[in-house]
Design a protein around this nucleic acid. Structure first.
Lengths: 234, 234
DNA sequence: GCAAAAGTGTTTACGCTACACCCATGA
DNA sequence: TCATGGGTGTAGCGTAAACACTTTTGC
């Protein structure tokens, strides 16, 4: 078996729920992904995931943190997790390069500074993507949806404190379907994922009862509903 | 950032449910993993996962299939799936090597020929393991347990046709806890994971009613219970 | 008939969805 | 007082665990 040089790169799919900049949608928040536009060939003009080559003395997670720091303030990054490996020998031109994709999450109200070549794009309306980065985004989106169902990963998309209607909008944007705020509350409270702060928000522009504020009980990733079936006895 | 040569290897955690060779346990089947014993340094004498270096013109899956073929007849392998990446810069001595771990499954009654340095070990009683291969086995075991709950992956551990009590023993061995055959039947039938063949087994050594035979409806991996919670409206 | 093993029925419990209804506020 | 949005109660549905009971076989 011949061995040639194999490179390894990391690529981060960084999501945030944002209200779209343009007034095209009705102001409803939507799931966005962080992309930068390639200024040089190959694939000049197309949009890329942040990331790049693995350094000699770093593991994958350190590498992706280092390279993401060039695009966003890492303090804004509430969650980072390895997802998949893309290993097609011809997935990019040039030397054979294996890519590990990561899922990164930025909480909703944060508006990190971005370099001029970098911006947020609605996942439902992606620009022309470089290489195999389009499928990587799609894969990450599906994993995020699944993980919202059985983990507390929402903490990494939500503000520190929030009204339930805000949280519903975030879940709804990330899952891509309508979410009932009432049931969301009870599911997450039963699992001890969220707790009331005791304070309330001021009521909105057009009146209405002031919303109770909640926060996530835990700001570290945790599986909250491990078994879909075939639970252990007990 | 300095770049040095980075190697990439694949390692397969191949599981099978087997009745232990020794008469230590009471003949109950248990989950086993395929290991080979290193004849040379480093880590001489310790036990290793099958696998090795990625070739130039193959993707990860092709590579692991090629390298597994040296240990077992690939026709016995009913399922193969990529799991995780281990990227600690000093996880093995010598050139920096990233490892991708795979989950492989061999159906229960098969008894593939093995090279003399290779044999099955009960997962509950592992021998001294080389490098970070011990944690890899543990990680794969946990993933297998989770996937048994929400996919049809059992097809890759079970015979073509089987009595429900056999299937219960297989699930029980893989999950590590008692499983009720009655409930297993209903869960898997409701999801259309198993179907009756219409035939029955001959009744056993000590009498008893002959068992109806079942088979898996699908012998390709399929998610059967996607949502633990937060289902889309319907 | 009797023991052994397989299969069925039934009860209980739990979690999620849906929806009607009640509550608190600003104008 | 009314419109608006937040919060609660509750009924219904689906799924799973537990376990007693019935059926079918060999001896």
């Amino acid at each position: 078996m011949a061995h040639i040089i194999t490179e390894h790169e990391v690529l981060a799919v960084v999501f945030q729920v944002r209200v779209p900049a343009s007034a095209d949608t009705d102001g409803k928040p939507a799931l966005h992904v962080l992309l930068w536009q390639r200024a040089l060939d190959p694939e000049r003009g197309r949009w890329s995931l942040p990331g790049g080559r693995l350094g000699a003395d770093e593991d994958l997670t350190s590498s992706v943190r280092r390279q993401l720091a060039e695009k966003v303030d890492l303090r804004e990054l509430a969650h980072l997790e390895q997802l998949a490996v893309f290993s097609d020998p011809i997935r990019v031109p040039g030397p054979r390069t294996i890519a590990s994709s990561f899922l990164g999450l930025v909480p909703s109200p944060a508006t990190p500074e971005l370099p001029s070549d970098t911006c947020w794009h609605a996942v439902s309306d992606l620009p022309p993507m470089a290489f195999d980065h389009g499928p990587m985004v799609e894969h990450a989106r599906i994993r995020l949806g699944a993980k919202l169902s059985y983990t507390n990963i929402g903490f990494a998309l939500a503000p520190d404190e929030f009204a339930l209607s805000t949280l519903r909008d975030i879940y709804s944007a990330a899952l891509g379907h309508h979410v009932d705020a009432t049931n969301l509350q009870r599911v997450l409270e039963r699992r001890n994922v969220i707790t009331r702060t005791g304070t309330t928000a001021r009521s909105g522009r057009s009146g209405g009862r002031p919303a109770a504020l909640y926060r996530f009980a835990d700001s570290r990733y945790r599986v909250t509903d491990e078994f879909a079936a075939l639970r252990p006895p007990g």
